[in-house]
Design a binder for these strands. Structure first.
Lengths: 199, 199
DNA sequence: CACTTAACGCAAGTAGCCTTGCGTTAAGGT
DNA sequence: ACCTTAACGCAAGGCTACTTGCGTTAAGTG
């Protein structure tokens, strides 16, 4: 099991390589947003980046890996996590922001791309951590609510966010049905109080 | 707006045509379950059905349409809808059955196929009605609960099922994270009583 | 049974995706 | 400034999905 001690293989992170990388990743995000996942091709990305096709194939190999890398590198900023002091307001606002994002071409494309590449175990795990890191940020909403006494101690943060976000993601993924304006609020209400209502 | 009166184009639903159709659709479901969506190809389906590739291309045109047609024709039976007299038990059992189905290769493949072909407006609408018809059957669980007084009148049946099923669908679609054994029950509990619990 | 033609099989051809070999450019060390 | 070589561009080739033209089979009709 030789790790990497046998061959030093000095990399060259500076100058041209980094420039090419940035250009390709930026172009990938643009093509993804404009053309969608189905028409997303290496050729289009390479042309827009002003780079030869071969370079993209050698560095990334497949469409799926390129999309994943572009997402990991490009979208460091995520959905804003509100903090108004009220759980219901926070959850509704976050759900609304997520719904708006998923309504954009880029948002749709990202969700589709993740669904596409979930066959490969390695890529699926990478996407999982990607989503996980995003949801952990929003977990603060639930945790703050527990501290304020709005939610009981021991509340499952992951389950709460999954219930809130999954309906939106599912609609974006496999439906053509649009997300109604009041859906985020109704989701927040039901997640908090259940179908039976309060009391 | 000529409907279909100009060209009668007498179809031939009997005999060979129907035989070929059934063979291809059955083969499509098999290939879909065994190879997955990514490796799903017209050639493999045609070979397994004992039919020439050209025939499949001429009748269905694209992979997406073939998968959709195979699903619509092949899986008339859906997830069993329990009726135990208790909402919580019914919802948990249905969620569990759905989770089990999504864990099978065929279930995963179906979900992925729907996500793939949701770019085409026509196909997306067809898939939407497909899911819709499945969820309407399960809607009986909520409606019966309302009649029994377990749930308040005016309960949103669609929202209830969406909250119950979406987390399972989302995990199957874009994660590698498995569905924990107790997840269906926890989903049913939270959907009914909310994060704040009962009382 | 004879006739029309929808539906199928066969084979050749096209196009897009991806790989490979080789020469060239430029980054990083001496 | 010089050398080594990682990284890129170019061009040719292979592979797979898909299309098209044409002859053949068999379903439906009188």
């Amino acid at each position: 099991m030789t790790e990497e001690d046998a061959e030093p293989i000095r990399r060259r992170p500076g100058g041209r390589a980094a420039r090419v990388r940035q250009a390709v990743l930026a172009a990938a995000l643009e093509v993804l947003a404009e053309e969608g996942v189905a028409r997303f091709g290496i050729a289009a990305v390479a042309a827009r980046a002003g780079v030869n096709e071969t370079t993209v194939y050698r560095r990334w190999g497949t469409r799926e890996k390129l999309v994943l890398d572009a997402m990991l590198a490009g979208s460091t900023e995520g959905i804003p996590v509100p903090d108004t002091g009220d759980v219901r307001t926070d959850l509704a606002a976050f759900a609304r922001a997520l719904a708006d994002y998923l309504a954009t071409p880029a948002g749709r494309a990202v969700a589709r791309a993740a669904a596409l590449s979930s066959d490969d175990p390695g890529l699926a795990e990478a996407w999982e951590t990607f989503w996980q890191s995003r949801l952990e940020l929003a977990g603060a909403i639930v945790e703050r609510a527990v501290e304020r006494g709005e939610l009981p101690a021991g509340t499952d943060t992951g389950l709460a966010l999954e219930l809130l976000c999954s309906p939106l993601q599912t609609r974006a993924l496999l439906g053509h049905r649009p997300i109604e304006p009041d859906l985020p609020e109704r989701l927040a209400d039901t997640v908090l109080d259940g179908l039976r209502g309060r009391g």
